[in-house]
Design a protein around this nucleic acid. Structure first.
Lengths: 234, 234
DNA sequence: GTATACTACCTTGTATACGAGCGGCCCGGA
DNA sequence: TCCGGGCCGCTCGTATACAAGGTAGTATAC
């Protein structure tokens, strides 16, 4: 699974609890819809309610848990319509970034991407966890290179929120190959400053992922998780 | 001043503190850069540190205050470059919404706007506080009508973050008149489904506000605030 | 069998207690 | 006068205590 732990989170207990909870949700150790209580979480983590509470408040604001006044917290159910809206937002934001990238100066911001995605087929990565990370990095780098930190931040937030299902897109080898092909095509178009072509490619690239997501039922989520954690436990 | 108080916020002390702090920041009773301590805020509000802490965490996440580990909180300084990025984001999001509005079905979502903005000059509002609220509502309605709740939510967040300076755009009567003219033109273009014309109008409309913001120095912020609070106290 | 009222537990919301760390201030020395 | 070191106070981070409110389950009346 893709970990979200950041190094600076070691000091504060609240951040440690936050990471733990988030990973538990992402790995389906905490199932969508299940109830959480501050006391139970605190006991389980061996801390007091205070840091647990702070972690829950953060997770609530990010949309992963819900606060039900005076009657506990719950893991938010996966709402696929919701994810589709987020994918549409990705299209909006990334197309805007692309427009700026093709129009303005972008320095060496895209050089790293070339080294990853414009490689001969033999050098492509095949581990799906790694590809999922590279995929996120590809899109994040494009957006960051547009030079608007706020745009990048919001894009990151959205990435974070769809990660829970987006990862599963790469459990099929065929999807990995397509991702490589499409990223390469997009990157070449951007480097050649072919704005409209790059836009078309990027839009259909994201729309494809969105369609894949639509196919993913809750059941498939579970089985995908089981096989994944069986192959790569921890 | 524009109040942000929501009715449901009466029950929780944390929400009351949140509203109070936010209003204090917006009205410059708490100046950018000034230090805050949980103890002092708690004493001033007559509550304990716990709800103060929750309020501060929310405000920090929204970008209004900063947490300096072990050495207090501070009101975030106004960063004008930051605001310009947010304005650019507004352009991106609202243009995307506009595109969907001109292309697809929008029902009666825009009817309210007609009643407000497509009125004879004599019926235009002149109170700048009211116009500022109407202006926010105009843009929010456009975005909401596009049918993507996530898009609307992010747009709301951005609106919230730039409100602190955007209000001042309307302290000049000439800017109010222009806003009416431009909103009317945009609305007419959308109703006629003239997508490219609407986009051009909306883009220049927002860019104009952005330029106004660029002119606003911290000093002007203060004097604008003083005169405003003198004219409309409370 | 069903509906209703009551009770007991469990939940959060808030207040308070305590400890570690950082910063500023004062004092001493060169 | 300038610099350094130690001390004191204030800060947050965390733990714990207490109370109001909600929920579920049970018992009871019909």
């Amino acid at each position: 699974m893709i970990r979200n732990t950041r190094p600076e989170d070691s000091a504060r207990l609240a951040d440690a609890v936050y990471d733990k909870l988030k990973n538990d949700i992402f790995d389906f150790r905490l199932l969508p819809g299940s109830a959480l209580s501050e006391n139970e979480l605190a006991a389980r983590a061996g801390v007091s309610r205070t840091p647990v509470r702070e972690a829950l408040l953060r997770l609530a604001r990010e949309g992963f848990v819900e606060r039900r006044a005076k009657s506990g917290w719950s893991v938010r159910a996966l709402d696929f319509e919701h994810f589709e809206h987020l994918y549409d937002l990705r299209v909006i934001l990334e197309l805007a970034a692309l427009g700026k990238l093709c129009a303005g100066d972008r320095g060496t911001a895209l050089d790293d991407l070339k080294a990853v995605w414009l490689v001969p087929p033999g050098e492509r990565r095949s581990d799906w966890i790694e590809v999922a990370q590279l995929d996120e990095a590809f899109h994040a780098t494009l957006v960051r290179a547009a030079g608007n930190p706020e745009l990048a931040r919001i894009h990151e937030d959205i990435t974070e929120r769809i990660r829970i299902i987006r990862r599963l897109d790469f459990t099929q080898a065929e999807r990995i190959a397509r991702t490589y092909d499409e990223h390469a095509a997009i990157l070449r178009a951007v480097l050649a400053r072919k704005a409209s072509q790059a836009s078309l490619l990027l839009r259909s690239h994201i729309e494809e992922s969105k369609l894949e997501v639509r196919k993913i039922s809750l059941h498939r989520l579970h089985s995908a998780h089981r096989s994944a954690s069986g192959a790569a436990p921890g």
